[in-house]
């Protein structure tokens, strides 16, 4: 996939609520994070769940979020993070992210 994100890219998770089998947890939708690494392309579970082949495959990333960006009242350390595996089509560029 040529339009892959690269490690270090700032991304925002789509805030949609499709009714199907979605592996992007609700708590992270709409949140902003940074791509850590690319795991490769995998069959799309949103199709596999319905007995479809899950094609085209989707690129899977590890995306890191700061706890404070997920939970504004997080009471741990500022540096604490959550890393989540997210498929390409659930991410959007977050161009303002680098300046925040």
């Amino acid at each position: 996939m040529s339009d892959r994100y690269s490690p270090g890219d700032h991304v925002r998770v789509r805030a949609d609520s499709p009714p199907g089998h979605i592996r992007t947890p609700v708590y992270i939708r709409g949140k902003c994070g940074v791509v850590r690494r690319i795991f490769g392309d995998f069959p799309n579970p949103e199709g596999l769940a319905y007995g479809q082949p899950g094609l085209p495959e989707k690129t899977l990333y590890e995306v890191r979020f700061r706890q404070r960006d997920i939970w504004p009242d997080y009471d741990g350390e500022l540096r604490d993070t959550v890393d989540i595996d997210i498929y390409h089509h659930w991410l959007e560029p977050d161009d303002a992210g680098a300046t925040r």
């Binding site: 199907g20 089998h21 579970p45 596999l48 769940a49 319905y50 007995g51 899950g54």
Partner: peptide, 11 residues
């Protein structure tokens, strides 16, 4: 059955 079919059925 696949892992994702089972997950969907559970959900």
């Amino acid at each position: 059955l696949s892992r994702d079919e089972r997950r969907l059925a559970i959900e």
